[in-house]
Design a binder for these strands. Structure first.
Lengths: 205, 205
DNA sequence: TAGATTGTTAATCGATTAACAATC
DNA sequence: TAGATTGTTAATCGATTAACAATC
């Protein structure tokens, strides 16, 4: 039974469940339990059940969850039962790595556009992907109707890029620049910064 | 006044405060307030004050926080008032990107060792960094007494690498493989997986 | 039927926010 | 002194856990 909007923190756990379900399917399992799934992702069984029940009754008492069925449901909830086109802005080392990363396609994403401002890079290719002049970014993202961008430019250019993206169809930004960016209401931002993660762990060393 | 152990979630915010403080210092500011810092990182002023006060009385009523002093204190707390050597395991695209990433050094980290299992890569260099055979990893990490590793191998090898790292001095792992790894008590793991982050945001599209 | 496991409610725990005395 | 802002306490809010009736 659907309730009010599920909290953000639950949405954030769904991709982890999905990851575990994929691996379970790979081992040939057909069914799992909140107990088992919890062990795979390091979360209590009670929480797994509570999270999943936010979206419907996908399990069976006594039996557990059908892996394929639950996988499909979570993919629907997260809207990754389709392929999303993605643009990369900034083709330095990180951007390059993202462009070549093989892990996107089978998880719902395809890198469709890549931009940089360096004359040496513009016009070159990474696999099939052409690096284009960032000057034409707004127009090209709009005509491709792309909703997701990964920003991998230096920190001092990140806000500028974000401001340009505000003029496009982009509504989700994965920001690799180690700086917070301001975006308008309705645009979602996630941050990935290896140094920040490392600094978190040194506390415990 | 020191209290009981500060919760993990507070530790995780300290690197964000640090990032903002650095940028403030860049603009020439000498002093900030919980209000201003909060705006920079997107957190309430009350929470900023509460977080910081866990570790000492670093501010002055009526004035706020001295940026340089607070920066130093947070760096001490996080133990990044020194340089940590880091090893990269797996020199695919992600590993390459990490090895070349310029953002580590001024945030407390230096990439010291790199390993891969591919004969074509072993013996080649990235800048000054020699890619070494993963077969000798345990020994080399131990003799360099490295405490931090970044794992960028395919998902199906991540656990194996983690098991090998368990035989070394490594106590903190930043895992880029899209899979949860089991480690023994006292080893900390953080996960970075772009696809997981993207999947989180598609829910809101 | 007996055993297992869900979905859900109530209890607990922890984190965030609001408010304000202390004080620079 | 008056104004500003901290550090801290109390109140609120939200998330996690425990427990169990429902049911496959």
């Amino acid at each position: 039974m659907k309730k009010t909007n599920p909290p953000d923190i639950i949405i954030g756990r769904l991709p982890l469940y999905l990851r575990a379900l994929h691996r379970m399917a790979d081992t040939g399992s057909l069914v799992t339990s909140s107990q088992e799934l919890g062990e795979w992702v390091g979360i209590s069984a009670a929480q797994i059940r509570k999270d999943i029940s936010q979206f419907g009754e996908f399990g069976k008492q006594g039996t557990g969850y059908n892996i394929q069925f639950l996988t499909e449901k979570i993919r629907e909830i997260l809207k990754i039962d389709r392929v999303w086109d993605v643009a990369i802005i900034g083709m330095g080392d990180i951007g390059h790595g993202l462009a070549r990363y093989q892990g996107f396609l089978d998880r719902g994403f395809r890198v469709r556009l890549a931009f940089d401002n360096s004359p040496e890079k513009i016009g070159t290719k990474i696999g099939d992907l052409l690096i284009q002049d960032i000057a034409g970014m707004v127009e090209k993202i709009n005509s491709a109707k792309i909703k997701i961008a990964m920003v991998a430019v230096p920190a001092n250019h990140a806000q500028e890029v974000a401001d340009d993206l505000a003029k496009t169809s982009v509504r989700a930004i994965l920001n690799y620049a180690p700086i917070r960016i301001n975006v308008s209401e309705g645009v979602h931002v996630q941050y990935i910064d290896p140094a920040t993660h490392l600094q978190w762990m040194t506390y415990y060393l």
